[in-house]
Design a protein around this nucleic acid. Structure first.
Length: 429
RNA sequence: GGAAGGGUGGCAGAGCGGACUAAUGCGCACGCCUCGAAAGCGUGUGAGGUGAAAGCCUCCGGGGGUUCGAAUCCCCCCCCUUCCGCCA
């Protein structure tokens, strides 16, 4: 959530900032009006409450003095006030809920540094790696689902048999590659990030804290019987680890990493990129996550992007970094860099990481604060998250990039320790 | 799943219908003392909302109820501990 006080006190600036994301200024005016209404109704209710408390004290005093008649009269007055209080409370609560439900779907304020633009076409390519684009041979122009099927690494048909389409099933070296990638990434960040293995089914509140609910309910798997949600990213449980808590400044930045399965219904993208591993309902991902002070956030964000890039460089995959424009940044983020890997078999740039600085947007939802060493009360932390790569698409890019003339696949040397020393997947026959 | 006991401020822990404005201890901050420190003594120490301020209101796991008045009584739910059952 953004700070309602900012909306109240600096309405025009908020309209301008959210206007960059396509929010209608009239919506903000409506919110401001509703907020004013909420505050006045809270005031009216609290006045009556104060009256009731005062009367109750007098009743107690009258009882002690044995003045039953006076106690009765006061009780009667308080009963009437109680009725009014209930009515006023219903009104106040209702209006407050309306304000909150608007705030919950209102996106974060974009960073001033984020480029202008309305959609994906306006994103800016910040840099590419390697500087000189590689040249790919014909043997690399084979899509990973064909390579995977031929070498017995990937069996999409059997995955669909078990769970429906877009649920991959890896086999043999293909399965081991997924495991290797996860270990590789977690080990790579062990120097600065605490490894977490969180639950992957979470409460509604946990999903609301990151911004995945209520707005994107259609994208999430929900287990109705137990009212639990399957996480779309480890960012969800990691954000809520300190939900409702107040951290010490000395604890920050607090860095966490987790490898989990991620579940996405992909409701809005039916029919698009459905081949192979381009878009799947379940995939593995290693996430980097940090809570920081506002001052630390920019450096933390940069460092996180560098770490994601480091993984791609270590794997030898061609990629580019996109600075997302205001119109394309996700709900909770103020600024986001996407990493896209080039996959020669499908001849596409595949998004494999999204590194976001969410300022205090999620922290306000989740009520996560810290006590500054200098100064007054607790303030909201900033949250940052980034994929230390999503392995389904990396898997695809590795298999396509590594395909040799003879049909075999050569995997990066850095993975050798995780693959039992063997980085070659032989062609059949 | 069954039984019992619990969930109170940063922590420990008392309170079990009206002075709760939540005791007390620890911790923390400041002061006194000291060459300096420890000890000791003193003072102060939760969060949120609203308001120019004084103040007012909310929060004792969550929700609902009883009452003039609820941390305290009743109902439902969640979580923790122990025991039993079941289970990878």
């Amino acid at each position: 959530m953004i700070d309602i006080r900012l909306v109240r006190d600096d309405t025009e600036a908020i309209k301008a900032a959210l206007g960059r994301r396509g929010i209608d200024p009239a919506d903000i005016d409506r919110l401001v009006a509703l907020d004013a209404q909420a505050r006045s109704s809270i005031g009216a209710r609290d006045e009556v409450r104060a009256r009731i408390k005062a009367i109750s004290k007098e009743v107690g005093a009258a009882r002690r003095d044995g003045d039953t008649a006076r106690a009765e009269a006061l009780s009667e007055e308080s009963r009437d006030a109680g009725e009014r209080e209930r009515e006023l409370d219903v009104t106040a609560t209702d209006i407050q809920d309306q304000v909150r439900s608007i705030l919950l779907v209102l996106p974060n304020l974009p960073s001033a540094d984020a480029p202008d633009g309305a959609g994906p076409e306006d994103n800016v390519v910040a840099r590419s790696w390697p500087e000189v684009a590689p040249v790919y041979g014909d043997h690399q122009r084979v899509p990973h689902w064909e390579v995977g099927a031929a070498l017995g690494l990937l069996d999409m048909e059997r995955g669909a048999k078990l769970s429906g389409s877009m649920f991959p099933l890896y086999r043999g070296m293909g399965a081991r590659l997924v495991r290797a990638l996860e270990s590789f990434a977690l080990d790579r960040h062990a120097d600065a990030y605490e490894e977490i293995r969180p639950p992957t089914l979470v409460l509604t509140e946990t999903m609301v804290s990151t911004g995945h609910l209520p707005k994107f309910e259609e994208d999430a798997y929900h287990l109705e019987r137990d009212d639990l949600w399957a996480i779309p990213t480890a960012e969800v449980p990691l954000t809520s680890m300190w939900r409702g808590d107040i951290l010490d400044e000395a604890d920050l930045p607090l860095r966490l990493t987790a490898g989990t399965s991620c579940y996405r219904r992909e409701a809005g993208s039916a029919g698009r990129d459905t081949r192979g591993l381009l878009r799947v309902h379940e995939f593995e991902k290693v996430e980097l996550f940090a809570y920081s002070t506002p001052d630390q956030a920019a450096a933390e964000h940069e460092a996180m992007v560098a770490r994601a890039e480091d993984l791609l460089q270590a794997l030898g995959l061609q990629y580019r970094v996109l600075d997302l424009c205001a119109g394309d940044i996700g709900l909770s983020a103020a600024r986001t860099f996407d990493l896209e890997v080039y996959s020669p078999g499908v001849d596409m740039w595949l998004e494999v990481s999204s590194v976001s600085w969410c300022s205090d947007y999620q922290a306000r939802r989740a009520n996560i604060r810290y006590r500054p060493e200098e100064g007054k009360g607790p303030v909201f932390v900033h949250t940052l998250n980034g994929s230390a790569l999503a392995w389904a698409r990396i898997w695809a890019a590795l298999v396509e990039t590594g395909r040799q003339d003879d049909g075999s696949v050569v995997l990066p040397d850095v993975l050798a320790p995780y693959l039992g020393g063997r980085t070659v997947v032989d062609a059949p026959g």
